[in-house]
Amino acid sequence: MAKETRSFAVIGLGAFGSAVAAELARFGNQVIGVDLDDRRIAQMASTLSSAVIIDTTDEVALREAGIDQYDVALIAIGRDIQASILTTMNLKMLGIDTIWVKASNRTHHRILSKLGADRVILPEQEMGRHIAQMLNNPVVQDYVSLGNGFSVVNIVIPARIKGRDIASLGVGTKYDLRLLGLMRGTEYRACDAADLVLEEDDKLILLGKRPELRRFGDAL
Rank of each mutant, 00 (worst) to 15 (best):
K3S: 06
T5D: 01
S7D: 06
A9Q: 06
G12A: 00
L13A: 04
G17Q: 02
G17C: 11
S18K: 09
S18W: 08
A19N: 13
A19E: 08
V20P: 04
A22Y: 12
R26W: 10
G28Y: 02
N29W: 02
Q30N: 09
Q30Y: 11
V31K: 04
I32V: 10
D38W: 12
R39Q: 09
R39Y: 04
I41H: 01
Q43N: 11
A45D: 12
S46L: 12
S46M: 12
T47K: 13
T47C: 10
I54H: 00
D55I: 07
D55T: 12
T56P: 07
E59W: 07
E59N: 11
V60M: 14
A61N: 15
G66S: 12
G66L: 13
D68I: 08
Q69G: 14
Q69S: 15
V72L: 10
A73G: 06
L74W: 01
L74V: 14
I75W: 06
I75F: 10
I75N: 05
I75H: 02
A76E: 02
A76F: 02
Q82A: 15
A83N: 02
T88M: 11
N90L: 06
L91K: 05
M93G: 15
G95W: 07
I96P: 09
I96R: 11
D97H: 13
W100E: 13
K102H: 10
A103C: 13
S104C: 15
R106M: 14
R106Q: 15
T107M: 14
T107I: 15
L112S: 02
S113C: 06
K114M: 02
A117E: 01
R119I: 07
V120H: 00
V120N: 01
V120G: 00
P123L: 05
Q125G: 02
E126T: 09
G128V: 03
R129A: 01
H130W: 03
I131Y: 00
I131H: 04
A132C: 00
L135A: 04
N136W: 12
P138M: 07
V140W: 01
D142T: 06
Y143I: 00
L146F: 03
L146M: 11
N148C: 07
V152W: 06
V152S: 05
N154R: 11
I155R: 04
I157H: 01
I157G: 03
P158C: 03
R160L: 06
R160T: 04
R160S: 12
K162H: 09
G163I: 08
R164F: 13
R164E: 09
A167R: 09
S168L: 05
S168T: 14
L169N: 04
G170V: 11
G170N: 11
V171T: 04
G172P: 03
G172S: 07
T173L: 14
D176H: 15
D176T: 14
L177F: 03
L177R: 01
L177S: 03
R178N: 15
G181A: 13
G181Y: 13
R184G: 07
T186R: 13
R189V: 13
R189T: 10
R189Q: 12
A190T: 14
A194Y: 04
E200I: 07
E200H: 05
D202W: 05
K203W: 09
L204I: 09
I205K: 09
I205M: 09
L207W: 07
K209L: 12
R210T: 12
R210Q: 12
R210E: 07
E212P: 07
R214W: 10
G217E: 10
G217H: 01
A219R: 10
A219E: 14
